[in-house]
Each structure stands twice: as structure tokens, then as C-alpha cells.
Write a protein that binds this DNA or RNA. Structure first.
Length: 950
RNA sequence: GCACCUUUAGCUCAGUGGUAGAGCGUUCCGUUCACAUCGGAAAGGCCGUAGGUUCGAUCCCUACAAGGUGCACCA
């Protein structure tokens, strides 16, 4: 700061953002000032300064950033730079989100398009590898974009929602909630996506309006209406309102036989308020397995619930002649049949209703009853520690109460405040949150089931992993012959399968491979050994069932001659091994090896039959269960986890739940999982001196209003539960960025404006300002390229103002104090007023920023700089500077410098690049020289903010 | 069905209990001397409609209309 002044580098005439921005970026990044620790180290921030922190809402690694992200980055960077300049300990923590379903579905689509394969073709490990590669590429693109916007995030603290540290947080949170009884597994009706084969949470549903014919059918003495006759095969309850005078002759529980789709049905009358007397005939039949409301009614009256449609949208046997049909195809056929039976009363065309679709892919959702994991939002639990006003430590509360209290107590303020109502409304309608997903990309549910007794071990320690692998496809498999102890070599396909298995096992730290000594297993085991580097030993006890005279026959011949699976002890031919004997042989060998090698990660390569009967023992199945269980395909890998002995039955073999957690489960932990929880947290509080202690709760959560529920509410829930506090003091919701006509930007409309294109064409400063000015909180912004261009002009204006001031005041910077003889004390009266006016602008700008009115703050400084400073003050100064009154000229020069200095500081959070570029061109003044404003820092980024009011 | 938001100049939006402002656009004028990515000037609005409160309303209240969003329903 006090080094001798360098001659200012000549300003090039028009401001060139493309040339300047990379240089400035490098300067900032090299300085390390985005990291608050560096700021303290270098004396920019006082060690005991107040903290100000924001965690960046992590963008999904599904592709690239859009204008909405750009707006988010601009807003947060303004807040961060402002607070950093005010000398606060300022942290902006970046990261990305694995976005489970969204990312997986993008990769699945690509895979299908480029390789015509499904994820199942690749297997879990290989598929996940592909997703990771894709996510990494997206991540790198995103980081590049975030940097290009000038976002002063602290990359040294970057986090990913699916990395190891976050996994520890997820497992800990899960375990704590499970232990508190808030996470449970149950059969409940969920939103099922038949295409993606997974559940979807209530919030991910997007209702799409659809017009369909509405059919009325005769159902005994009643008329019922429906859009979906194909779901009504099992409808045997008829529901009516208890007060409906039309049906008062019918009593609750009364039964009557009615003619229905596939013949007569015994129907039962149910009286329930749920029936709307004014809708249609006021009578409805219910399909509890495929409708949330119907399910509720069924539960209330303890009615039978029968599944009609399977997970793929195919009708089940209950549909009689329609079984096996897809529901979409079945509708006209069912309709036709009902018409033929004379049960169709009438058709009303153009009935408008909403259809639930998956917002991540658009497929129509089918309610299904499934065994899933849920978070209970209503259950009371004892909260050990709470700082939330109105909820005492040690008191009974519920997650819903935490969410409500956190906001209505004022602990969290939502801006604009009208969203508080929306928030409460959402809480009131909140049901238990289904957190399990049948997809692969995500945090695996940290629950292990004891294979023997099904006991649930939560967040257990896996001591070692054992894998059962069947050999690859053989010539015998192709010919469909019973191989037994005879052998045939692997086919090409079989060798490829074995390699895939090797790939899958490569990263599992395999220490030993135990294989059947038959050639097909030997061959498979050796391929796997090559991939994993593990030693192979052979054990004849893992051979296939000995089939005696049956060996070499085709399956059909075998079946015909011996009925080999008729029962457990069947030994149709004297020399054939029974299944019981096989089970004994294989299980004994397995137990023996596990006793010796239990601490190692082991692969066992064996045969289809051998694995089947081994699993019968391990999983404690009956003969019939084992017989129908699907066993490994060729070279498929089955994983068993060795844990501490089950507390219930003493068995040590477990299987981890194959599902993953809803992406919002990990996102909900974001503010504290990024700051060191749970490692830096003990006894109800963060350890002293850690990031968690310093930066949590964060100052503000800034995001689009469209994810208020998804995310904001869940963070409040999770933080309340895990820390007994709030994740942030303020929520600031910005609007969505739309096109000039107010439409959503979408690829299909072709109206997407890419932030990177804008920064390249007009500069990051212009792109940022265009998203700030005129964007009042919570209201959508209409963006057009013209707007961005307009702010590029402003950047240039600021550049030229600076050129003028520096050029006309050049001598001030070179002359010594004494020569000039002027100081702050004896300015002309007019100049004192100008400086006061500038200071007033500084307080107005500060106040607007403090109130989250960045639009007004930006507008204020924009107008001051252009229309007051440039158009009036500078224009008036021209005559003064050229005038004969030297004292007045000198005073004005000082004043122009001062106004420029303040303006640059005020502008910096909004347009960091051009202001920093100018700052770098400013001469470094010797201390006190000519009373000029102090260039108090090499970088404007950490210079002092000019106003400290408010 | 229930909420919420919006309605101000051609467009995009600020705004205040004392009858209105910006940017862009339009028109005209201007270029040696920071900037044509510029400067100067002008035109353009009964502040959605109807009531009410008030000395006075664009601003507060009520109703309505149009547009939008969320939630619920959807047999």
C-alpha cells in the first residue's frame, strides 16, 4: 500500500471486458481473499469481526447453468462482496448437487440413445461409474461458469452433496432420526413412476391438465362415473355420503351382488363423508391400491386392498381376460366390454382433470402401495437441545412444529414476507415424506437387513464384503443343458460377462477369490482375479449339484425324466445329489471359509444351483421360496455384507437396502454438513473455533421461490432436528428469469439465453446488472439481450469517467502535499456539498442492500454515477478545472477523486470486474498525500466500504 | 374450490396519503478537447374498473375484471 506509485497504465479507449475479466479473475483467485481465513491472515479482516456466511444453493450436476443460476450468483456475490468490504468475516461456500433422479435420468437417456442399453445392462457399479463421469464433466463446466460470473466463492471449502463427508452427515442424520422413531419403514401409498421404476415425493409431482371422456356405468342399482374404467376390476366397495337422502335406504356394511366387468361381484356399501354429494351421482366405487384417497377410506374402514396394476403398468390376474395388458391399451377394450354388457350409461366428452406426472421426466404417475422409508412429520419426539424460540430443550415436539416455529417465532425471516403464508400453507398440507428411491445414483439407505432374521441394523459398520458370482455363460448354457459336474467352456459372451463382473469388483479391495474347481468357474475366477489382483483358491465343495445320469440332458429332457425339483430330498436316480445334500455341502464350505476369512473381502465363484441353495441357507428360506427365488444370471454379482453379529439372532451376514435416499434428504443438511457436522459437533453444540461454530447459522439463504418447499422447508426441518437451531436467519427469494415476453426459458421454445454467451458478448458485469436492476424480490425478471447490452454501455461509461478523472487530475498524484497546499479541511463549499451528497448516496445504497433491495441499490448507484456524477458534476467541473481560480480547481480535483473513489467502492459488488480493473489503474497514493482518498488496499475486492450506517 | 401476486408512458418496471418517475424505444438537435457503448432536448400516462374512508388517493378499505402463480379437488 505504501510502495512508490506506479505510473497508471494507459486506459484503452473502450472498456474491453473480454480482455480484462480473465486477468482480474486471476488476480482475485491468486489473492485468496475469497477465503476468510486468508483475509484474517493478511490483516484484511479482524479476527474478532462478525461473521457473515452464505452457502451456495448447489446447482444440479445435470448440465450447465442457466440465467436463473446467474441471477442467484449475482445476488449472492453482491451480498458477499458488500459484507466482505465492510470488514466482516465473510464466507461463501460453493458446491454442487448430485440431484439423484434428475442426473440418473439424463445419463439413462444418453445411454439408451448412444448405446441402446439400459442401466440394468451395465449393472449397478458400471452404471454408477458412468453417472460419476457425467457428473464430473458437468461439475467442471459449472465451476467454469461460476468463476466466469466473478462469484467470489471460497473454492477451498467446496462440497458435493454425494461426497464422503456428506455421506457421513447423511448416515448420522438418518440414524438419529431412526433412533428418535421419526424414520420408519412401512407399506403406504406412494407416487410410482412406472417408467423410471421409482417412487417420487409429493413435491415432485407436476399436475398436467388433461381432457378425457368421462364414462358413466351401471353398478348394480347405482351409476358411477370414471375416467379410468381399466382400474376398476376389483372395485367392490361402494361409497356414499351418510347424509345423502337419495341413498338413505342403503345401510353401511350392507352387501349386494352386482354385475361387473368380469361377472358378478359382491359389493359392500360404505358410508363416508369423502363422497361428494354434488359430484355426479354422489356414489363412487374405490380402488384403494391405486388412489391416495381411496386408500385412506379403505384404511379407515379396514377394507381389503388389492393391487390391480403392477409396477410397470400391466394389469394383474384380477383383470381376468385383460391380465397382462398395459393399462393404456386396456381402456378401450374394457370400455367395449362394459358397453357390450349393457353397463355403459353414457359418455361425457371433454372432462377436464389433472393428471399427476413426474416433474423429472414427465411420465404419468400411478399410485401404488409399496414398502418404503418415510419421515414422520407429525410424531412427537423429545428434542435434546433447542434454540428455536418456543421450543424448549428437552420438550416434546414434532418436525412440523419445528418448521412452523422456526418461522413464526421470527427466528427466520422470509423476504418477501408474503411467502411466509405460502410456507405455512405447505406445512399444513404436509404428509409423511417418502425418502426412499429405487434409483442407483444417490446416498444408499444406511440400513442393513440381517439375512437370517430380517432385523434392521442402521448405519452399521461393514467389516467385510462377500460377493457371490456365478460363472459366465457357457456353451452348455446356450444349449440349455444340465451341466452338473460336466463342463463346457465359456462363450465369448460369457468371457465378456466375467470381465464386466471383474470391472464391478475392481474397486472393492478384493483379497481372496474362492472358486469351484470346475472349468467354467475356474475360467471366470481367473478373469476376475486379473481385474482385482486377488489370489484364487479352489474348493470342490462349491461345485454345481451332481446330477448323475441327468448330466448332459437338456432342461426339457431333464424335467421330463426326473422332475428334479419336486422336493427337497428327491433323488429320482440313485446317483443324483438331493437339493438338501447340495445345500449342506455348499453351506458347510461357506461357513468354513467365512470362519477363516471373515475379515477379508472375498469373492466366491460358483454355479447357479449351488448359489441358489446356499442362499436358501443364508437367507433362511423355505424350500419353495428358494425354488422360485430369482438366482444370479451369468456372472452377476451378489453382495453380502459381513457385520457384527445380529443382536437378535447372532448371524453376521447382512444385505444393505438397495434403495437410495431422496436427493432432498442430503440437501436438507447442506448448511451444516458443509461446515463440518457431525465431526465438529459434540454435546449439543459445535466445537469451539470450527467453521460450524463460526459460520452457522448462516446469514441468508438466497434462492428461487420455486424451491421454497423442496429445499428451504427441508433444511429447516433437518437443522431443527440435528442441531436444534435454524439453518439461516433470513430467506431471500428471488424471482424466476423469463424471456422478454415473460415466458419460461426452455430449450423447446428456443428462447434460452445462455449466461456464458452473455458474459462473453457483453461482459460479466453487464450480465450481472441486467439480472439485478428491475428485479424486485420475489418477482420474475424479464430478460432480453437489449437489457444486457444497455449495461455494457454503463460499464464503459464508468471506465471513461475514471479516465477523465485520472487524466484531469494527473498532477495531483505526482505532486507532494506541500506543493499543493490543500487538504480536506479547506475545500470549496460547493465541493463539500458534493462530497456530502456522495456520502448520502453511500448510505442509501447500504440501506437498500441491508433490506435485500438490491434492485433499488443498483438503480441508485447507477443513476448517481451516470446522471449525476458524469452528466452534471463532471460537465460542470470542466469549466472550473480550466478556469483561472486555481484554488477552486484544486478543490474540485480533490472532489472528483473522492467521488470516483466512493463510486468505485459502491459499484464494486454490482460490477466487480470493471471497477477492479479501474482500481488497478489507480495510482497508489502515498499516505496522506494531498489529502486524496486512500487506496487502502491493492485489491478493490477487500477495500473498505464507504458507509457504515444502519 | 382456497390462497397469493400483478395491473402506472409503446415496452420493462420503480414509487409516495397532497393529483407521477426511470431505463429502453420513438422524434429532433449536437462530435477537436473522458465516453457515439456519447451528449442535449421533446413527445407520450384521467396510475385496470366501480364504490368507500379522507380536506385530499395511484397509494388505505371493499367489490369486480383481466393476467399469472401456488395449494387442494379431480369417483
Amino acid at each position: 500500500m505504501t510502495e512508490p506509485s506506479k505510473a497508471p497504465e494507459p486506459f484503452l479507449k473502450p472498456y474491453n471486458s473480454a480482455e480484462n475479466e480473465p486477468k482480474i479473475l486471476e488476480l482475485w483467485e491468486k489473492s485468496g481473499f475469497a477465503n476468510p481465513d486468508v483475509c484474517i491472515e493478511k490483516g484484511v479482516t479482524a479476527p474478532d469481526a462478525e461473521s457473515y456466511s452464505i452457502v451456495l444453493p448447489p446447482p444440479n450436476v445435470t448440465g450447465t447453468l442457466h440465467m436463473g443460476h446467474a441471477a442467484m450468483l449475482a445476488i449472492q456475490d453482491i451480498l458477499i462482496r458488500y459484507h466482505r468490504m465492510r470488514g466482516e468475516k465473510t464466507l461463501w461456500l460453493p458446491g454442487t448437487d448430485h440431484a439423484a433422479i434428475a442426473t440418473q435420468s439424463v445419463v439413462e437417456k444418453n445411454l439408451l440413445k448412444t448405446e441402446k442399453k439400459s442401466r440394468h445392462d451395465l449393472g449397478r457399479e458400471e452404471f454408477l461409474k458412468r453417472v460419476e463421469e457425467f457428473a464430473q464433466a458437468s461439475h467442471d463446466t459449472i465451476v467454469g461458469q461460476v468463476r466466469a460470473m466473478g462469484a467470489s466463492v471460497d473454492w477451498t471449502r467446496e462440497a458435493y452433496t454425494l461426497d464422503e463427508a456428506r455421506n457421513v452427515a447423511v448416515r448420522t442424520a438418518f440414524k438419529n432420526m431412526y433412533d428418535a422413531g421419526l424414520i420408519y419403514r412401512g407399506n403406504r401409498i406412494v407416487n410410482w413412476d412406472p417408467k423410471m421404476q421409482t417412487t417420487v415425493s409429493d413435491d415432485e409431482i407436476e399436475y398436467v391438465e388433461q381432457k378425457d371422456p368421462f364414462y358413466y356405468f351401471k353398478y348394480g342399482p347405482f351409476t358411477i362415473g370414471t375416467v379410468r374404467p381399466e382400474t376398476k376390476f376389483g372395485d367392490k366397495y361402494i361409497v356414499m355420503h351418510p347424509d345423502d337422502a337419495r341413498y338413505k335406504e342403503y345401510k353401511h356394511g350392507q352387501q349386494l351382488e352386482v354385475e361387473w366387468i368380469n361377472g358378478p361381484i359382491l359389493a359392500t356399501i360404505i358410508k363416508d363423508q369423502a363422497a361428494d354429494m354434488s359430484f355426479g351421482s354422489g356414489v363412487m366405487t374405490i380402488t384403494p391400491a391405486h388412489s391416495g384417497i381411496d386408500f385412506e377410506i379403505a384404511q379407515k374402514h379396514k377394507l381389503d386392498v388389492e393391487q390391480i396394476i403392477n409396477e410397470r403398468g400391466i394389469l394383474l390376474p384380477i383383470a381376468g381376460e385383460f391380465a397382462g395388458q398395459h393399462i393404456k391399451k386396456a381402456r378401450p377394450m374394457v370400455l367395449e366390454k362394459l358397453r357390450a354388457k349393457g353397463l355403459l350409461v353414457k359418455i361425457e366428452e371433454g372432462y377436464v382433470h389433472n393428471v399427476a406426472t413426474n416433474s423429472r421426466g414427465g411420465e404419468t404417475l400411478e399410485p401404488q402401495i409399496k414398502l418404503q422409508w418415510f419421515v414422520d412429520v407429525n410424531k412427537k419426539f423429545t428434542i435434546p437441545h433447542s434454540e428455536i424460540p418456543g421450543i424448549a430443550s428437552g420438550s416434546k415436539t414434532s418436525l412440523k412444529e419445528i418448521m412452523r416455529r422456526a418461522v413464526d417465532s421470527g427466528a427466520i425471516k422470509i423476504a418477501p414476507d408474503r411467502f411466509e403464508k405460502v410456507y405455512y400453507n405447505w406445512i399444513d398440507n404436509l404428509r409423511d415424506w417418502c425418502i426412499s428411491r429405487q434409483i442407483w445414483y444417490g446416498h444408499r439407505i444406511p440400513v442393513w437387513y440381517c439375512l437370517n432374521c430380517k432385523y434392521e441394523a442402521v448405519d452399521a459398520d461393514v467389516k467385510s464384503k462377500w460377493f457371490l458370482v456365478r460363472h459366465g455363460e457357457t456353451e452348455g448354457n446356450v444349449k440349455r443343458i444340465t451341466q452338473g459336474h460336466q463342463d463346457t467352456p465359456l462363450t465369448e459372451q460369457g468371457i465378456a460377462q466375467a470381465r464386466t463382473a471383474g470391472e464391478q469388483l475392481k474397486n472393492q479391495n478384493i483379497e481372496l477369490i474362492i472358486s469351484s474347481d470346475l472349468g467354467r468357474c475356474k475360467q471366470t475366477a481367473e478373469i476376475i482375479a486379473k481385474a482385482t489382483g486377488a489370489e484364487v483358491v479352489f474348493d470342490a465343495a462349491f461345485r454345481e449339484r451332481f446330477m448323475g445320469d441327468g448330466e448332459g440332458l437338456t432342461y426339457e429332457e431333464q424335467e421330463e425324466r426326473f422332475s428334479p425339483f419336486k422336493d427337497y430330498d428327491d433323488r429320482t436316480e440313485g446317483n443324483m445329489e438331493t437339493t438338501r445334500e447340495l445345500e449342506e455341502r455348499v453351506s458347510e464350505a461357506f461357513a468354513k471359509h467365512k470362519k477363516i476369512h471373515g475379515h477379508k473381502n472375498v469373492v466366491i465363484v460358483s454355479h447357479g444351483g449351488a448359489i441358489r441353495w446356499l442362499l436358501k441357507r443364508i437367507k433362511n428360506l423355505t424350500f419353495d421360496e428358494a425354488r422360485i427365488t430369482k438366482v444370479a444370471g451369468n456372472a452377476s454379482v451378489q453382495s453380502l455384507d459381513v457385520l457384527n453379529a445380529c443382536t437378535k439372532c447372532g448371524n453376521d451376514l447382512f444385505e444393505q437396502d438397495s434403495d437410495t435416499l431422496d436427493t432432498w434428504f442430503s440437501s436438507g443438511l447442506w448448511t451444516f454438513s458443509t461446515l463440518g457436522w457431525p465431526l465438529d459437533y459434540a454435546q449439543g453444540k459445535p466445537k469451539t473455533g470450527t467453521d460450524l461454530a463460526t459460520y452457522h447459522p448462516t446469514a441468508v439463504l438466497e434462492t428461487g421461490y420455486d424451491i421454497l418447499f423442496f429445499w428451504v422447508a427441508r433444511m429447516i426441518l433437518m437443522t431443527g432436528f440435528c442441531l436444534g437451531t435454524v439453518p439461516f436467519r433470513n430467506v431471500y427469494l428471488h424471482g424466476l428469469v423469463r424471456d422478454a415476453k415473460g415466458r419460461k426459458m426452455s430449450k423447446s421454445l428456443g428462447n434460452v439465453i445462455d449466461p456464458l454467451t452473455m458474459t462473453e458478448k457483453y461482459g460479466a458485469d453487464a450480465a450481472r446488472l441486467s439480472l439485478i436492476v428491475g428485479a424486485s424480490p420475489g418477482n420474475d425478471v424479464k430478460l432480453s439481450e437489449d437489457r444486457v447490452r444497455g449495461y455494457k454501455h454503463f460499464a464503459n461509461k464508468v471506465w471513461n469517467i475514471s479516465r477523465f478523472v485520472l487524466e484531469s487530475c494527473a498532477d495531483l498524484h505526482t505532486k507532494a502535499d506541500a506543493e499543493i497546499g490543500h487538504g480536506v479541511s479547506n475545500l470549496e463549499e460547493a465541493d463539500n456539498q458534493l462530497i456530502a451528497e456522495t456520502q448520502e448516496i453511500a448510505s442509501v445504497v447500504s440501506e437498500h442492500i441491508d433490506n435485500f433491495r438490491l434492485d433499488l441499490a443498483a438503480d441508485t448507484i447507477y443513476h448517481f454515477v451516470w446522471h449525476r456524477f458524469a452528466d452534471e458534476i463532471i460537465e460542470d467541473s470542466k469549466t472550473i478545472l480550466k478556469g483561472a481560480d486555481e484554488a477552486a480547481a484544486l478543490s474540485r480535483r480533490y472532489t472528483l477523486n473522492a467521488i470516483l473513489d466512493t463510486s468505485l467502492r459502491l459499484l464494486h459488488p454490482f460490477m466487480p470486474f470493471v471497477t477492479e480493473a479501474i482500481w488497478q489503474n489507480l495510482p497508489a497514493h502515498a499516505g496522506g498525500q494531498a489529502g486524496l482518498p486512500q487506496k487502502d488496499s491493492e485489491l478493490l475486492m477487500v477495500a473498505k466500504w464507504p458507509s457504515y450506517n444502519s
